[in-house]
Computed example of a mutant assay.
Amino acid sequence: MVADGLRVLFCGINPGLMSAATGHHFARPGNRFWPVLHLSGFTPGQLRPDEQGELLSYGLGITNVVARATARADELSPEEYVEGGRLLTARVTRYAPRWLAVVGVTAYRSAFGERKAGVGPQERTIGDTRVWVLPNPSGLNAHWTAATMAEEYARLREAAGAADQGGSVSVTTPSS
């Protein structure tokens, strides 16, 4: 779900088996993407995976680094990540969203060769598109809670100039 003129293009790692079966991003029960998107203020209510089409009305889109479905992201090869990064760069160049939000620091590091990248805004740009790395909302990423993820997503929302859509997170920007 990509279109011209998006404020933010969210980019997951690759489809899980449930997402591949349903055709909906972040479809596995327990994945925190949809609740965090709402808590961060990107959407006025919590969307279900089958409502992903509504993202476009908020200036948001969604895609993946790698198209191949797997049970776990660690089943992907380094070559798949690099090729996915190349294809993602072409997609971002074509559609020129304001921000590319890669959901998963390891995926970003692998796809773009940025070994020391961390969560937050990146130095890299793709044309005029800025890049932000977000924590992976998978339940396997237990050291990030829904609340702490929502704070990071809200930082991106504010940077992207996305109007508050009803989220309930107060954001404090860390001092440098």
Results as ranks from 00 to 15, higher is better:
Arg32Phe: 10
Gln46Gly: 06
Leu156Lys: 13
Ser77Val: 01
Asn136Gly: 05
Ala67Phe: 12
Ala101Tyr: 01
Gly23Leu: 03
Thr43Lys: 04
Ala150Lys: 01
Ala147Asp: 14
Val119Ala: 10
Ser138Pro: 11
Ala146Ile: 13
Arg155Ile: 14
Arg28Cys: 08
Ala163Trp: 00
Tyr108Gly: 09
Phe112Cys: 15
Leu76Phe: 02
Gly104Ser: 09
Cys11Tyr: 03
Leu17Gly: 07
Ala159Leu: 15
Gly127His: 07
Ser176Gln: 09
Gly59Pro: 07
Met149Gln: 07
Arg72Asp: 13
Gly113Tyr: 13
Arg91Ala: 13
Gly166Ile: 01
Val65Ala: 11
Val105Pro: 12
Val119Cys: 14
Gly12Thr: 03
Thr172Asn: 12
Gly5Arg: 02
Ser110His: 04
Arg94Leu: 14
Tyr81Gln: 15
Leu134Phe: 04
Arg7Asn: 14
Leu140Pro: 06
Pro29Thr: 08
His24Met: 06
Thr125Glu: 13
Gly85Ser: 10
Leu140Lys: 02
Asn64Ile: 09
Ala67Pro: 06
Thr70Lys: 06
Gly104His: 05
Gly127Asp: 09
Glu158Asn: 12
Ala154Val: 03
Val102Trp: 11
Glu51Met: 10
Thr148Gly: 01
Arg130Ala: 11
Gly61Val: 08
Tyr153Ala: 06
Gly104Asp: 10
Gly16Pro: 06
Trp132Pro: 02
Gly127Ile: 01
Ser40Glu: 08
Leu17Pro: 04
Val66Ala: 02
Trp144Tyr: 14
Ala101Val: 07
Arg155Cys: 12
Met149Ala: 11
Leu134Asp: 09
Asp50Tyr: 08
Thr70Arg: 11
Ala163Met: 10
Tyr81Asn: 15
Thr125Tyr: 09
Ala69Gly: 10
Gly104Thr: 03
Ser19Gln: 06
Thr43Ser: 06
Arg124Gly: 06
Ala67Thr: 13
Gly45Lys: 12
Gly41Gln: 02
Ala142Leu: 08
Val133Pro: 05
Ser19Thr: 02
Val66His: 03
Arg86Phe: 05
Gly113Val: 13
His143Ile: 12
Ala117Thr: 14
Ser175Lys: 04
Pro35His: 12
Thr172Phe: 04
Phe10Tyr: 02
Asp164Gln: 08
Trp144Ile: 09
Gly118Glu: 10
Pro44Val: 00
Glu51Gln: 15
Ala154His: 02
Arg28Phe: 07
Pro29Leu: 09
Val105Ile: 14
Ala117Cys: 12
Gln52Ser: 15
Met149Arg: 07
Glu151Arg: 13
Ala20Phe: 00
Val2Tyr: 08
Ile13Trp: 06
Thr93Ser: 14
Glu152His: 10
Trp34His: 06
Pro78Trp: 01
Val36Ala: 14
Gln46Ala: 06
Pro135Val: 08
Ala163Tyr: 00
Ala96Cys: 13
Leu55Tyr: 03
Pro35Met: 02
Lys116Trp: 01
Gly61Ile: 06
Pro137Asp: 07
Val66Gln: 04
Trp99Met: 08
Gly139Cys: 07
Ala67Gly: 01
Gly41Asn: 03
Gly23Phe: 00
Ser168Thr: 14
Glu152Arg: 07
Lys116Pro: 00
His143Asp: 12
Pro35Thr: 07
Leu60Arg: 04
Leu140Val: 11
Pro35Arg: 02
Thr145Pro: 14
Ala147Phe: 00
Asn64Phe: 05
Phe26Lys: 04
Phe112Arg: 15
Ala71Lys: 05
Pro78Asp: 15
Gln52Arg: 05
Pro135Ile: 01
Thr106Cys: 05
Gly139Pro: 07
Leu76Lys: 11
Ala3Met: 07
Val105Arg: 12
Pro174Ala: 05
Ala146Asp: 15
